[in-house]
């Protein structure tokens, strides 16, 4: 489902003496449907960078990244937009939303973008927010004013609103209490069970052991560290 072949990435900082930083070099691996892969490695090893490359958020200089058959390295923006809407979900560590939009609408939005009717999308959003213990009185408020943990849960609800065939999870259990951590892990297990291919960064070792089938140490693809 997710397939990387000889993928490399450099940053060129034009305004800082045109420094060229090689961050990832020659990565190849694949994630099958129903499988969960953990990216490991020290801070700065390039785990988040690699996730962002797979999401198309960072430009990849060399290699192939195929998701559901589409090589996002060579794809037009509209194909990536469509891929993100239909196939590839991403739960980042930060919530980025239009201010003043109610939480319920924020969570329902990925479904609305797919053309799901408003009431159906809201039902799904309601179920997820309930499951993730976001008090109902907060649903009509914008999540921009919420605490870090609440924002993280809204972000997760939004990420799991649609049943994406492929998902990228960046620290999904960080800053969650035990009960909510349990909810998130079961959401991941459900997604695996329905055949989603999942890649994630989990600093929470117990969580990683529970949901992940394999681990890849990104450090070995990082030229700076290897050298």
């Amino acid at each position: 489902m997710i397939e990387l072949k000889n993928v490399s990435k450099t940053f060129t900082l034009h305004n800082q003496g045109s420094a060229v930083i090689e961050v990832i070099s020659d990565v190849s691996f694949a994630v099958a449907p129903g499988e969960c892969l953990a990216l490991t490695g020290a801070s700065g090893a390039g785990k988040s960078t690699l996730m962002r490359m797979i999401y198309g958020n960072y430009l990849t200089q060399a290699g192939e990244i195929r998701i559901g058959g589409l090589d996002i390295v060579k794809s037009e923006p509209r194909d990536i937009v469509k891929l993100r809407r239909d196939v590839l979900g991403y739960v980042s560590q930060f919530l980025r939303v239009v201010p003043r939009v109610p939480t319920l609408d924020v969570v329902a939005e990925p479904l609305r973008a797919l053309g799901v009717p408003a009431d159906e999308a809201q039902d799904r959003a309601t179920a997820l927010l309930t499951q993730l213990n976001i008090p109902e009185r907060l649903w009509s408020l914008s999540p921009t004013t919420f605490s870090g943990g609440e924002q993280q849960r809204v972000n997760i609800a939004r990420g799991f609103a649609h049943s994406y065939p492929a998902m990228l999870l960046d620290e999904p259990t960080a800053s969650l209490d035990a009960a909510n951590r349990e909810v998130v892990l079961s959401l991941i297990e459900d997604a695996k069970a329905r055949g989603a291919a999942i890649m994630g960064i989990f600093h929470d070792e117990a969580a990683r052991t529970r949901v992940c089938d394999r681990e890849i140490d990104v450090g070995r693809f990082t030229p700076g560290i290897a050298a």
């Binding site: 940053f11 900082l13 034009h14 962002r52 958020n57 430009l59 923006p77 990536i80």
Partner: peptide, 21 residues
């Protein structure tokens, strides 16, 4: 030119980098 978040988060051209930063 490119995907919006890609251009904003990983700008390639010197001017785009300056604009974003």
């Amino acid at each position: 030119a490119g995907l919006t978040d890609q251009v904003l988060d990983d700008p390639q051209h010197a001017y785009s980098q300056l604009l974003v930063s």
